[in-house]
Design a protein around this nucleic acid. Structure first.
Lengths: 342, 342
DNA sequence: ACGGTGCGTGTAAACGTTTACATGATAGGA
DNA sequence: TCCTATCATGTAAACGTTTACACGCACCGT
């Protein structure tokens, strides 16, 4: 491999000058700069960023630990994170936790050992020891989407509570009374927030949420299927089930289809996270949409601020309801206030 | 940051012994090993992999450049790559090319500068200069899914031609005669393979493929929509359109839905790549399924072989047809031979 | 008692950069 | 003309590891 040394030799200059020329240091003469560039080009010189990082203590890399790469919500997040990071001069290393705390641990450790400049994490579960450790360590950390309460780290997330209120209002306006929910892991903040907001709004409408109408999922397809099967076995089947992420909604659809039931005629379905396929399912699915790409961008900017010595603050972006047909046809005379329509 | 030096001091040993103990070198006494481990633990020592990499010329990292993170096919690939790589002791850095040659270039360069041990790439386009350069450079390279003809690099891919033959047979058996195709970029091998196999099988059935029935797409949603709109504007609308990836199929669905047309009654639709949503669209979509996760695993193993000094060979895995309802109901008396059914 | 063997440990160089500091040349001011 | 400031460049240390080599010691066979 050709190094800075070879370039120096070819250009008849010292390594210091070559390094300076390559880094755009102003205190190098035009003549020297030209010779360096020519030599580097001729030799096909490629900087060795690992050596550079060792010396500078900066890797130009941020880590992103997401909960599940197979979840379109997170891939969209990852994409916008990478895009913004690239614009800011950083590379991104993605770690996929598959909703498992041990994998999250693995990736957090791995990324820290690689001496990333900053870490973006969507904690799968509040109990990953490495994540907690990282949060109080020297490497800047920003939580995105989910966070860990009580940990003093900036959070960039969206607040789904308003949209969930709109959703429940919408469901009630359609005449539904038996509402069920498939939750995420209650150890995650998003999991808890969604079920809490749901329960509170139900209470405001004077509707109870019996334990049998709460399915405990883990944000994965299979758990959505299982929870839905349990609902369908109930003597009093719910009018509509609200799956708190898109994968569990897919599982619910699987379970409903397997019984030969039809949405929304036999049972309604609502979801969280809007993904392109939701317009094309049978029927199109009513869901709550987050400003996913924006979340990623804001999170990266917050982290970059932190890395560069600034002080980042938390951001909360609103989510909104997107009404489609999976909960029944809305009565045109009584639009539910404030909810967005397609 | 606490380094090996601090550990050495705390343990009352030299850095060499500490390094050896930490790396499981057998020539260190149990007593010393224990002291080292205790000291490292007490100090919260974390190895600095960038220093290690500089010295050993190995980063324990492989790069993966995929064509599009938003494409579920590639995220499934990425997931299996990471999983297998982790099992083999490697980390993965993913670069997303978004089907753009310039981004592919960017990521290939970036990864090589990071001195990854090996590179897995699904070339977006045959003309990315860096990818070609990398293929003949010192860093081991394996192509996955797509490849560049004439470049001497192992390829791990699936062969869709057999499945496309099955698909065309299936469509003909349903009585369809006007078959249209939305291709990928013809600079990609998968793009070309799919249209070639389609055209050949059509010819074998004595059916022409007029230019107007070939929509030139780029594996992205929007191009699928545009191509489909053009088909729908034709005086003789095709009986069925075959979108050669899942995103363009989504675009086609968009276009068809916007005209108020119904699949398969007004027009049939077939796709390439099976994704979970295809069972839940309206109607469920007939498609060609690749052994995606297996492709990822095999590719990683091939690359790891190469990295460790072995000689890797190419692998071709078969794809197969999955018949659903988007091309019309099959006549139960004439099952199309060999095609898998759900 | 002696040379050889092996084992555990230490010393120091090396990996490819960046950068503080030193140096030499040039130019400017008096 | 000399002193000094400025500028371009060079020298060498440092970043945190790994590892070739050297060393000292205990043990073995003769």
């Amino acid at each position: 491999m050709v190094g800075i040394k070879d370039v120096a030799e070819a250009a008849g200059l010292s390594v210091a000058t070559v390094s300076r020329a390559l880094n755009g240091n102003p205190s190098v003469s035009d003549a020297a700069r030209e010779r360096v560039l020519a030599a580097a080009d001729a030799l096909g010189y490629r900087p060795n960023v690992v050596a550079r990082s060792l010396r500078t203590h900066r890797t130009g890399t941020i880590g992103l630990v997401i909960s599940d790469v197979l979840n379109p919500y997170f891939t969209e997040l990852a994409r916008s994170v990478e895009e913004e990071a690239r614009a800011l001069g950083y590379s991104v290393i993605i770690g996929n936790a598959d909703e498992r705390a041990d994998l999250e641990d693995h990736h957090v450790r791995n990324l820290l050992e690689r001496r990333i400049d900053g870490l973006l994490v969507s904690p799968a579960d509040g109990h990953s020891p490495r994540t907690l450790e990282a949060a109080s360590g020297p490497t800047p950390v920003v939580f995105v989407d989910r966070w860990i309460p009580g940990v003093d780290v900036p959070v960039v997330r969206s607040d789904g509570r308003g949209a969930i209120r709109d959703l429940v209002d919408h469901l009630c306006s359609l005449g539904h009374r038996r509402l069920a929910i498939i939750t995420g892991p209650t150890a995650t903040t998003t999991g808890r927030e969604r079920v809490d907001a749901f329960r509170e709004t139900l209470a405001a409408h004077g509707i109870p949420l019996p334990e049998s109408y709460i399915g405990r999922g883990d944000f994965q397809v299979e758990s959505g299927r299982l929870a839905t099967e349990r609902f369908l076995d109930l003597p009093e089947r719910p009018d509509v089930v609200f799956a708190t992420d898109n994968l569990m909604a897919l599982g619910a659809l699987d379970a409903i289809g397997e019984r030969g039931l039809r949405v929304p005629h036999d049972i309604g379905l609502a979801a969280f996270d809007d993904i392109p396929w939701f317009s094309h399912t049978d029927p199109p699915i009513t869901t709550i949409s987050q400003p996913t790409a924006e979340l990623g961008r804001v999170a990266v900017r917050a982290l970059a601020d932190l890395v560069e010595g600034g002080a980042a603050s938390s951001t909360v972006l609103p989510a909104h309801l997107v009404v489609r047909r999976s909960c029944g046809e809305p009565d045109p005379r009584t639009p539910s206030g404030g909810a967005a329509r397609e």
